[in-house]
C-alpha cells in the first residue's frame, strides 16, 4: 500500500474536475492523509487467491429485450437545463 505522501491532490482534483481553494487543498490533503493511514492497514490482509467482490449477489445476464419504449418529451428532458436553445443544451465553447 502506498503511503499518502503519494497523494498528488492537484493532479487528482484535476482528474475530478474540481477547483479547490488553497485552504481546501491543504485541509483535504491532511484529512485524507489520516484516512489513507487508516486504510493502509488493508495491506496486512493476505488476499492471495481471493476473488474481488464487485456485487454482493452476482447474477449473470441481466438484460432486456430490444423493445423500444417511449422516452422523455424534449421539454421534460430539458426542463432542468441551465441554458438551452433550439431544443439543445447550451454549453460554453468546447476548447480541446
Amino acid at each position: 500500500m502506498s503511503a499518502h505522501a503519494d497523494l498528488d491532490i492537484d493532479h487528482v482534483a484535476r482528474l475530478a474536475r474540481l477547483a479547490l481553494t488553497p485552504e481546501e487543498r491543504a485541509r483535504f490533503a491532511s484529512q485524507l492523509g489520516g484516512v489513507l493511514d487508516h486504510v493502509a492497514q488493508l495491506s496486512e490482509v493476505d488476499v492471495s487467491g481471493i476473488e474481488p467482490t464487485a456485487h454482493a449477489f452476482p447474477v449473470f445476464n441481466v438484460w432486456a429485450e430490444d423493445k423500444p419504449a417511449p422516452g422523455l418529451p424534449v421539454e421534460a428532458a430539458l426542463r432542468n437545463a441551465p441554458a438551452q436553445r433550439d431544443h439543445m443544451v447550451v454549453v460554453p465553447k468546447v476548447v480541446e
Partner: peptide
C-alpha cells in the same frame, strides 16, 4: 493505485 486500493478493497470485501 487501482490494484493497491480498489482491487484490494474488493478482495477484503470478499473476506
Amino acid at each position: 493505485y487501482y490494484d493497491a486500493f480498489y482491487l484490494r478493497a474488493q478482495k477484503v470485501r470478499t473476506l
